[in-house]
Nucleic acid binder design. Structure first.
Length: 157
DNA sequence: GCCAACGTTGGC
DNA sequence: GCCAACGTTGGC
């Protein structure tokens, strides 16, 4: 599989807001609108070349649908200064922006969704319990071994 | 700095 | 629509 030095992530998005098809059409996107400090900090620690699973949340069925690559990091999130945006943050200072984000590139859509149900059946690990009811973390790290297991399942589907 | 009230996420 | 989980806010 890929380079040994890269990290793996999972990013959630509601397909009604922004789904894998939107990314496929746009080819790449700024992952803006993140307003949770822990998620932001994970995004800050991303590096170019990292691989990210695209997870569809709040839909039927929820699950991993595709793969992305991190192509840029530490970009200012423009929505924080846009008073028309739902992500507008009046407390953010132009000189010291509170929110930043990464840029992601579309790699692929998997033939089959790896549903949350299947994930929960196949993994007992603490890692993927992070995908659960009430969890507000929309960006999370995935450890290398679990990532490899996920690739194995996803690529043969 | 504590903690109760409140808001959001997201599976079911 | 319900509600568990949990982050955020604000009074003190």
């Amino acid at each position: 599989m890929a380079d040994k030095n890269i990290s793996y992530w999972l990013m959630k998005s509601e397909p009604s807001a922004y789904g894998i098809k939107d990314l496929q059409n746009e080819k790449e996107t700024l992952w803006d609108g993140i307003r949770n400090y822990q998620a932001r900090n994970f995004m800050r620690s991303m590096q170019k070349g990292d691989l990210t699973f695209f997870y569809h949340s709040n839909c039927k069925p929820p699950g991993i649908v595709g793969l992305m690559e991190v192509i840029d990091t530490h970009l200012i999130d423009p929505t924080q200064f846009d008073s028309n945006s739902k992500y507008f943050d009046p407390k953010s200072d132009q000189k010291k922006p509170r929110w930043d984000c990464a840029k992601l590139k579309y790699i692929k859509t998997y033939n089959k969704i790896l549903t949350l149900k299947e994930i929960n059946e196949k993994f007992n690990s603490e890692e993927l319990i992070l995908i659960r009811k009430g969890n507000r973390l929309s960006i999370m790290p995935i450890n290398r071994l679990i990532a490899q297991d996920l690739f194995k399942i996803l690529d043969e589907g």
